[in-house]
Design a protein around this nucleic acid. Structure first.
Lengths: 206, 206
DNA sequence: CGTACTTTTGAATCGCATCAAATCTGGTGG
DNA sequence: CCACCAGATTTGATGCGATTCAAAAGTACG
């Protein structure tokens, strides 16, 4: 059904990118601790995570890191298309792989291929909605509510895969890992949540 | 210098929209308490706030409202371009005016005019960055830090205009209005902040 | 002039951050 | 294989800061 040459690219990219860009995609492994790009650097490649886990983070004035996004599958820094510099760091939390696409090739294709531009706009629209949901989540008081909101919005069917444990998730929720561990324990005790095969599962459908 | 017919449109829209869409723009007043659109409704017009203040909000399960965005000048619900339904409410907080553009006309222009599509993508990129900054802000502990972050990122030159008072701002910061009033008072007492002509001004440029 | 809203201050309570420490885990090298 | 280490997980105690509830004073607007 699918061309063997396409097998290296995940389905979302095959649907999104025109053929000439798919040919330019370069898969590369990335290892824990690696900095895919750094704040202030000039964007030259658009990156797409296919395996492992990457976080976008920015340093506060006290040197504390604030996690802006956690990605296990999808573009990172897609809004840097027309930026002169990155405004945050991309750090690999769990080793995996990324696909790199030359930024200028994307720009050329967007200008020439209006159907591609429409799909790109749809992707950005989706990202905007995801970010609004994250803002909504961070506005909730209470770790438990934030956690349940995360599972509902990001998980499918009340299931959320835990990539590299709860710790990086805690940062995304804007709470300490201790608080998150306690919240998970309490929700499990009350039977509202279960941990199964590296997933969090909400029990009472509500 | 400028054509009299263009005077009704703000500069950002004149720069963004192609002529045929500018001709379709309809300015309409909106009054406090008005619901510009409601969650679940089908988007037919793209809205741009030119005066007053509008908030995007969603109701929590306890009936408490969570503010996703506060807009005094710019598009609202721009990510609903390809959505079947709105995912939040748009409520007018301070009476003003909005510009409405037919959604299908925008879609047609985006498909036909690749330069316009590029400008639209740039606008979405900007919005994504703004939302990431908001997530970063909501991850900060302490009302004072959030407030200073807001003034730094959204205000120009350390000045942030207060549209309709601090109360709607408190919701955007994810804190109670009491906490925000106290934070402002304390920052003023320590000389780090001043209130001037309906603006918040950071004193010690950091 | 009255009504509705914002602004302001106060007191009590609660949840989370913080600091600390023990256990568990997977992976590395001897 | 075992010792060992780094990091994740878990539990405990304490304090701070925000929420919450309450109430008063200021302010805009019809």
């Amino acid at each position: 059904m699918t061309d063997p040459a396409d097998k290296r690219l995940p389905a979302p990219l095959r649907k999104l990118l025109p053929a000439e860009l798919q040919a330019l995609c370069a898969v590369a492994p990335c290892t824990r601790g690696e900095l895919l790009f750094a704040q202030g650097k000039k964007p030259t490649r658009m990156l797409y995570v296919t395996a492992g886990e990457v976080v976008l983070q920015r340093m506060g004035r006290q040197g504390e890191s604030v996690v802006l996004q956690r990605s296990r599958h999808g573009f990172i820094g897609e809004a840097s298309l027309d930026s002169a510099r990155y405004h945050c760091d991309a750090l690999v939390i769990t080793s995996g792989a990324v696909i790199a696409i030359p930024m200028d090739a994307i720009k050329r294709s967007l200008a020439a291929d209006s159907a591609f531009a429409s799909r790109w706009i749809a992707m950005l629209n989706h990202e905007v909605k995801r970010l609004r949901a994250q803002c909504e989540r961070l506005s909730l008081r209470g770790v438990k509510e934030r956690l349940l909101h995360l599972i509902e919005t990001e998980g499918g069917e009340g299931r959320l895969p835990l990539g590299s444990g709860l710790k990086s998730m805690a940062a995304e929720l804007g709470v300490t890992h201790e608080a998150l561990y306690r919240a998970v324990a309490e929700l499990e005790k009350h039977g509202r949540l279960r941990r199964r095969e590296n997933c969090l599962v909400v029990v009472g459908g509500v």
